[in-house]
Amino acid sequence: MKINQKDVEHVARLARLNLEPQELEVMTVQMDAILGYVDKLNELDTEGIEPTAHAVPMANAFREDEIRPSIGIELALGNAPMVAGESCFQVPKVIE
């Protein structure tokens, strides 16, 4: 086993995904199979190989410090599930 149900539960918490017990079970089996498969990467010796973050090697993309118009409160909040007061997003309180 590459991964057990407890690990999967922990990962689900990190990812803020609520998984039902049955989903957890299936997820554990599937993730285990996939992780077992990707283990084949260890057949390769990658000592001293630089990782590739972008396939096309590039550096330095900038913008100048010039103000561009914001989209406005109406559009900013246009898709908000809940709005607080005049112009804030509303979220439930943090309960530990």
């Binding site: 990812a15 803020r16 995904l17 898709n79 908000a80 599930p81 979220v91 439930p92 943090v94 309960i95």
Partner: peptide, 21 residues
Amino acid sequence: VRFGVRKDEGAGLISMYQQTR
């Protein structure tokens, strides 16, 4: 928080995240 279909059963922020996702 800012868009999308929220699911909130009133059990606080973290629960809202987990339910929504």
